[in-house]
Design a protein around this nucleic acid. Structure first.
Lengths: 187, 187
DNA sequence: TTCACTATTTAACATATGTAAAAAATTACC
DNA sequence: GGTAATTTTTTACATATGTTAAATAGTGAA
């Protein structure tokens, strides 16, 4: 997936504006297990997944809880850093070797103030992330873990294969034992 | 709270740009119990609460579940309508007589394409809503209902007074009986 | 104040989920 | 291919929360 495609998928940009952003991008790769973003740290870059799969997790009383998975095309961001220049909640761990497009937040913010198209691209970007987050929240509040597990199986069957069950269980908000029971019933 | 104050709190605007937005705003009032936004409907306006308190809820198997409360200064929006021009999840019910600033979504979108300051205002607006939504999601995933109830008591003591307990229980994701038990333990 | 209505709490019981630990299955490596 | 290491499932038990229903408290109207 090229950076141009990813940018256009968020909000179509004129060639000139698009190149202003694309020029800022650096391609970077890291091995499985690498921690790309760190909790309680102000991050200065955002990333777009070119290849691979990652998880966001936070520590709660010593055991970590996964609250997001990211794959090809997804943005990997500490929203608190990006939006408020504050420390974020999440560690981002690479579940496979990954390649990212890296973008310095400050570079992007400069463009927001200079180019109205890029400002609107940034608006659409935030709006789309907002919708995704709202959907996660509503699904979590309204649907039981088993249904959300079925959704995951349906929408991201590869993810369920590629990711250890314990991470998926904590993502669903149940224990691994409970998820195992659920899976047994589905058989 | 004036509309100018609310706009500036989201992202400070130059007087000229601010007036472009302020001119679009219409003040509207409705009685307690009125349904301001309807689920499964594409909404064409967004609202900012000048006075009063509202709740967002969705129907689940016949009983409604509250997932958001809005008060003075808060935006009342069907995000799905605003961002994607699609039907939203939520009914918005007025828990008291309320006054809103109303803004047509299409009017605002026109300005996004014409004025870079307003485009950046729209970006900041989405970004801030995104942070709020993310915080709600993380709090819901990481903290037990009782702690979230304590937070609510601390951050919005008036809300706990003004809103029936059943709504608060469903907002917390527990039954009213369970919330009552929790409250009994706090005494 | 009294009555009617609504909201909240309490009680009794059923059930689902968590915890801890062991068993089984799967994967990785020599 | 065999052994160790890891992951997943199963078991047994404890506990918290849901359900239903009844009791109590609170509120507003006449």
């Amino acid at each position: 997936m090229t950076i141009e495609t990813i940018l256009d998928n968020i909000y179509p940009l004129l060639e000139e504006s698009k190149q202003l952003v694309a020029r800022l991008v650096k391609e970077v790769s890291f091995p499985k297990g690498y921690i790309l973003l760190k909790a309680n740290k102000i991050e200065t870059s955002i990333y777009l997944v070119k290849k691979g799969i990652v998880r966001a997790y936070s520590d709660l009383d010593g055991n970590d809880i996964t609250f997001w998975f990211g794959q090809e095309g997804d943005p990997v961001i500490s929203m608190k850093s990006y939006v408020s220049n504050q420390k974020g909640y999440e560690d981002i761990e690479l579940l496979e070797a990954c390649t990212f497009y890296e973008l310095k937040i400050s570079d992007l913010q400069d463009l927001f103030l200079k180019d109205i198209h890029i400002a609107n691209w940034g608006r659409r970007f935030a709006e789309k992330e907002l919708i995704k987050t709202e959907e996660r929240l509503i699904s979590r509040q309204f649907r039981p873990a088993i249904d959300r597990y079925k959704d995951l199986l349906k929408d991201h069957p590869d993810l369920v294969q590629r990711v250890p069950l314990g991470y998926i269980a904590s993502y669903l908000g149940i224990t691994q034992v409970s998820l195992s029971r659920v899976r047994a019933e589905l058989r």
